[in-house]
Simulated assay, not measured.
Amino acid sequence: MLHGCLFAPSLFTFWFVNGVLDFSTAVAIGAVATPAGLQVRLFAYVLLVPVFLLARVILHLAHPVHRAQVLSGACPNTQLMSLDWVSLGILATGLPLAIQNFGPWFGMNAVFLVGVFIVPRVVSPRFRPGVKLLAIVVGVVVFLYATYGSAVSFLPAPSSVLGPVATAALTDGTTDRVFRLANSVAFGPPLIAAFAVAMNHVLTRPELRDVPLVRRTLPHRDPDRVVAASAAFGTAFYLLVVAAVTRQIIVFP
């Protein structure tokens, strides 16, 4: 009765592809501090699909109208949760570790802001997609060079080329406080939910959707309530997994 309605096989395809991309990115940007931390996140991600499907079943069966539709063999048309945004809760809790090196992040996003949102407003429409694509490429190069350029012997020191973009960083104490905030039961779910809603609006802006290649990787804009609820649920689920595995839990930062 529920097959093909709540248990779409495409979910598993999305789960696998999204996991490969997200975890590769998390490792590359430093959102995972230790192998043990990576293992916990992987364990939570492995459990994600069955937990997500169970939550969908409970939500639909708890709703009188949806329950009647499901029991009659029809699929509810209302989206209550999104696997994409639920998975964000598992990885976004590690972002404070990644942004400790604040300079490269600031430099990359400054390039994005200027090249994607500002410069295209004053150039010919014919050149706008190319300008935006170039800005995205340059922004990524700035981030990679500022972060890893010092490890390449034949390149000039990033600090001599980019200045503060390569050297600005948050202190260990600040990073730890932000990390504990994002990974606390009291503040983590609403904080990650707010971040997800912001990303839902930024990544679906028309300025990004007309960029060649990039538009194929962007999500469709979901209702904010779905995004917030999904991200908060994913964060709470991840914190529960952490508590079960490590026997440690942060209630208040």
Rank of each mutant, 00 (worst) to 15 (best):
A231D: 05
L48R: 02
S72V: 08
V57S: 13
R41T: 11
S153E: 15
R56M: 09
I250D: 13
I29A: 04
A236W: 10
L54V: 11
A194N: 02
K132H: 05
F12H: 13
T93W: 00
L113N: 05
P125D: 06
L95V: 10
G115C: 03
S160V: 14
Q100M: 07
S160Y: 11
V137S: 05
T25H: 13
L11H: 13
D176G: 14
F237R: 03
G234E: 04
S72R: 14
I192A: 08
A36Y: 12
T174R: 12
I136Q: 05
P219N: 05
F102C: 07
A243I: 12
L42N: 00
D172L: 15
G73T: 05
D84L: 14
I118F: 14
R67C: 06
P212Q: 08
F23G: 12
P35D: 06
L83E: 02
A62K: 01
F237Y: 11
S124Y: 04
G173H: 13
G37V: 00
W105Q: 00
R126D: 04
L83Q: 06
F112C: 00
H220A: 14
P190E: 07
Q69C: 04
C75R: 04
V152T: 14
V214K: 07
F179W: 15
R56W: 03
F106V: 13
L208C: 09
D224C: 10
L133F: 14
L91N: 09
L42I: 03
P64H: 00
N200H: 01
V49N: 08
L88K: 10
A182P: 02
Q39C: 14
G30K: 00
V131S: 05
C5A: 13
L218E: 04
V211G: 04
F117W: 10
P96T: 06
L2M: 15
F16A: 13
M1Q: 13
S153Q: 14
I136L: 12
F195H: 11
T175V: 08
P76E: 01
R209L: 10
A26V: 06
L113M: 12
Q100G: 06
Y45R: 01
A231I: 06
G73V: 07
